[in-house]
Each structure stands twice: as C-alpha cells, then as structure tokens.
Simulated assay, not measured.
Amino acid sequence: MRPSVLRRAGTAALALAAALAPTVAAAHPGGAHPGSSHGVDAQRVGAQRALHARLLGEKTVPHKLDFQDTTVGGLSGIDRNPCTGSYALISDDRSFLQPVRFYTARIDVDADGVHSVDFTSTHPLLRPDGSVYPSPITDPAHAADPEEMRVDPRGGCHRLWWAQEGDRPTKEGDPVVQPALQRADLTGAYRGTFRLPPDYAITPGGGPRRNESLEAFTFGSRGHTLTSAIEGPLVQDGPEPTLAHGALVRVTRQNRGGRVLGQFAYPLEKIFTASDPSSPWPPSTGVPSILAFPGDPDRYLVLERTWVAGAGYKIRLYDATTRGATDVRAMDSLAGEHVVPMRKKLVADFDTLGLSRIENTEGMTWGPALPSGERTVVLVSDDNFSADESTQVVALAVR
C-alpha cells in the first residue's frame, strides 16, 4: 500500500471505527561507490538470452465487487495452482472491511488475451487458535498486513504460504508487529510459521522500514527452496532511492527448513521523476513481487513498483540473476561496502505496453504455456479499495 493511499485508508478505518528495453541503472546506496565492475555486471544477466515480453490483454474487476459477503479489492498477491490451474489471490485488507482473507479464481488467459476473471471462493486466514485476525484499530499488536501468497508446489498443492510485512510503529509506545511468513491449508487454517532471516526483524536501529518490509517471496527448485525480498532497503543498509541514486535491497534464498543458503543485494532503480511539490507524500518505490524461473535456481523475474505524487505509478519488470553476486548474509550493513549486486535486464516498462492505464501492480505469477512456446505471466493490481484506482489483471507473453 502506497503513502498516497495510507491517508485514504486511515480515513476509511476511522470511519469504520512487455516492451523490451536493454537498459539498467546501478544502485549506489548511501553514496558508496560500488567499483568499476558493478556497472559492467549490472548491464547483463549471465550468458542467458534476453527475455522478451508482449501484452496479451487485461481485464478490470468491478470496483468493490461483492463476493460471498466480502469486498473484493486490495489484491496484493497472486499465484497459479499448478495442480488445478486456478489462482489464489490475497487481499491486503487488514480486517478493516472483513477479516484478513484470500480468494480463489478462474482466470481465462490464452494467446488472444484475458477473457474472464471469475472468483470461486474466499476464506479467512486464521491465527493458530483458529480465530480471525483483528483490526489494527481494536488490537494493533495482533493485527496482520497480508501482502503475498504462494501455492506450495510440493505435496499435491494442498498448502498455501502467505507473507505479512508487519508494522514499525511511528510513535513510542505503539506495538511492533514483526514480518512473518506462515503456512495455511486451502481453507485458511493455520499450519505453521516459516523462520525468516534475522535481519528481516524490526529493531529500534535496524531492519525493514515501515511499509517497506516483506512483500515478495517465491518457491524455486520445484519447491525445495524459498526466495524472499525486502521491499525497500533495510534501515542499516542506507537511504531510500532518490532522483539521484537507487538503493540495494536484500534478497534471501532459504531451504524449506529456514536455513539461509545465500543473501544478495538487488539494485533498485532511482525515482523516475520529481514529485508534485504541493503533495505531503514523498515518492515510494520497492519490490512487491519476485518470481523464480522454473529450472534455474539463480534466475528471477523481479517486479519494481514506484509511486510519485503528480505522476502516478511506474511499473517495470526485470530479469535478474544471483549468479556472480556477492553473498551478503554476513554483512550487518551494506552502506559503504563494495558488493557485486544481482545483475538485471529490463523486460517490460508498463508505460510502453499499451495498457488502458497504469495501476498499482503488486502481484505476479507464471500462467499457462502458449502454443507459440511462450509462457504467460499474470499480474494483478492492488486498488487500495479506492474509487481512483482499479483491480487490473494483466497477462504478458514472455519468450
């Protein structure tokens, strides 16, 4: 959820109680100079061929669609169930409207576009005691901020994993809610918690910034590994991106038991344009979703989403690799350190795809294969339950 809509969300709460462009920008956090090899490495993605993307189509879900006594919206994560072909979508409603929940849907995507989006069920995500998550208004210490969901590809696809980014308080005395990654069954019942890396914890002097925590994770190696990304730079890793420089965000690969196999620095782009000076809201940018390539444990699609007051959203999709990148798991801070970041190449800038409008795209998943040999990528936007935004399902074909 972007700062521009936190104001609207707060008001509502109180009221309730791809074209290809082979360019890359290297991130220089905190004024640190990454060295001459950094620019060279950041401009190519190993020996693999460049990925091409084209728009297949889009479909807009009716605003505040009423489905099984819930309000459809805030869709921040999407994943295709490889066993059934259906999709799981998580809402980032923090129990303001209805309890924290997810949906299942049939999305008809083929070479001719996106033909329909039909919701088939919804379930609340439950706490270990079987209760629903409370609203942050009534019980902020036990509230959840859901942002991403994946279907576990192992064991017959009978488990869902979901991430919530927690909450760093803005004033003394307010509770800290730590980021978490949990397992649930297909009805939303709690089935366990995954151990996150220690540097993902919110502490007084470090860890994720507020609203820039755990939003992205993906299964790799046929479900044997899990890779997650922090949305923005950790407090100790240097400042957020500006018009002049980008930043480094941490990407961590773990086994299913939680053991860290490697941690890498992903170079986040600088802010693309100046903000409207009359706006009280600063620009915001980060990584809301990451998607592992089947068969390549080092390669990922990375979604970057930026919001700037007066300019709106910029959405870009990158092909990135950890191959050759510095393992930074032992580094307490990246500020001032020489690291070789993940290499990346632009796959699609949504401004050039021909979409009807650019929305707050936060979730993505691999879709069905096409007869052409291309693979589809299905993406969804978070409308923030605002009439000014929409829930947009976009399908790309990539080769």
Rank of each mutant, 00 (worst) to 15 (best):
P146Y: 05
P179I: 03
T138I: 09
I358P: 04
L355K: 06
G156W: 06
L16E: 14
A12L: 14
T376R: 05
T376E: 10
G373K: 06
S275R: 14
R316T: 13
H63A: 00
V328D: 00
N81E: 12
R329Q: 13
R183P: 00
G130P: 10
V347S: 07
Y200E: 08
A50V: 12
P179Q: 02
I271C: 04
H28M: 05
D92C: 03
S279T: 12
L214Q: 08
A26K: 09
A12W: 10
A335I: 06
L186A: 02
Q263W: 02
R195Q: 10
D174I: 04
V151N: 06
I202K: 10
R209M: 09
T193R: 14
R159Y: 04
A229W: 05
S76W: 11
P280F: 01
S91K: 07
G39Y: 12
G39P: 03
V177N: 03
L379D: 00
V72D: 02
P233M: 00
P239N: 08
Y266M: 02
T138N: 08
G192K: 02
D388G: 06
N211E: 07
T273Y: 04
G295E: 10
P124Q: 11
K345Y: 07
G205E: 13
Y190S: 07
Q68S: 04
F350K: 03
P169Q: 10
R183M: 11
G310M: 05
F102Y: 15
S289L: 04
R49F: 00
V302Q: 05
A111Q: 11
D112K: 13
K64M: 04
P140I: 01
T203I: 06
R54E: 14
D167M: 11
A25W: 06
Y87R: 09
D167P: 00
D332I: 01
D167I: 02
I202R: 09
V249M: 05
Q263T: 12
A335F: 04
L55H: 05
T70F: 01
P282G: 01
A387G: 10
A184M: 09
G173Y: 04
A141E: 14
E337A: 05
Y133F: 15
V24S: 11
A19M: 05
R305G: 01
Y103I: 06
V249C: 06
L160I: 15
E58V: 09
D327P: 07
N211L: 11
R222N: 14
R343S: 15
